[in-house]
């Protein structure tokens, strides 16, 4: 059985560095298995957040060879073995210990979003064609890899003014819901900062659920913001119809 060499980050918010470990590779092994091997056989105090080991809980997010990934879905035999495999915590979030980061900021952003609000007395009947779009967004497992890779958060650290791709997906799932009756475009523009997104599609590239975050959530939301705030023709139409301006 061949050994793989892993460079795993060890440290906390005050700093740290990668440590080298040799791990025997078994068929079908994933990076999370290798981390469990280190915990079980080499250093039991290695901190790793995980739960389902089936790509559904979104807990084991990390950066493997510099790419944001779920460690439970990253097979060892898919990685080049000629060089050490690096495993680092998500860069965008503060480190608690080793590979565990503090993602609580995401839950604070989530609180800003008005929940599903149907019209009073609405008939609870929906057709499949109306919920197809929303169902794609419901696949999100909140692994926050999209938040990690988004350069607005990762490099520009705009956490005060930007919600991030995960929450654009959530807003899209509410805004496009056929029974929802609340507009969140002002929130999108002013508080979640959808205009800061420059469509570089990294969120889509890393999504383990293969949600088309940019094409199906962010761009349609940007277009809805344009409808309300940047389209002079629609503004005129609203004025003629006597509809309320945003």
């Amino acid at each position: 059985m061949a050994d793989a060499v892993l460079h795993v980050f060890r440290g906390d918010k005050d700093g740290g560095q990668a440590k080298e470990y040799r791990v025997p590779v078994a068929p079908g092994m994933v990076v999370l298995d290798a981390l469990h091997y280190i915990q079980g056989h080499i250093e039991s105090d290695l901190a790793v957040r995980w739960n389902c080991k089936a790509g559904k809980c979104g807990s084991c997010s990390a950066e493997v060879n510099g790419r944001p990934r779920l460690t439970c879905k990253t097979r060892m035999d898919a990685l080049p073995q000629d060089k050490p495999i690096t495993v680092s915590p998500m860069k965008t979030f503060p480190i608690i210990k080793d590979l565990v980061t503090d993602v609580s900021w995401n839950y604070e952003v989530n609180k800003k979003i008005p929940p599903f609000t149907p019209k009073p007395g609405v008939e609870w009947k929906m057709y499949q064609e109306d919920v197809d779009r929303v169902q794609e967004f419901r696949k999100c497992i909140e692994c926050f890899l999209c938040q990690d890779v988004c350069h607005v958060l990762r490099d520009h650290d705009k956490k005060e003014s930007f919600g991030g791709p995960r929450f654009f997906v959530r807003v899209a799932s509410l805004e496009m819901h056929p029974l929802d009756n609340v507009s969140r475009t002002k929130l999108l523009k002013d508080e979640l900062g959808v205009g800061l997104c420059n469509i570089t599609k990294c969120c889509t590239e890393v999504c383990p659920e293969e949600i088309h975050i940019t094409d199906n959530a962010i761009i349609p939301l940007k277009e809805r913001v344009v409808d309300e705030y940047y389209d002079p023709l629609l503004r005129l139409v609203r004025k003629i119809r006597g509809a309320p301006q945003p």
């Binding site: 460079h7 980050f9 440290g11 700093g15 740290g16 560095q17 990668a18 440590k19 080298e20 470990y21 040799r22 080499i42 250093e43 950066e63 510099g66 050490p84 690096t86 680092s88 915590p89 860069k91 480190i95």
Partner: peptide, 9 residues
């Protein structure tokens, strides 16, 4: 096992 000297990115 050894330290590699690679800091966090």
């Amino acid at each position: 096992m050894s330290e590699t000297g690679l800091p966090i990115l």
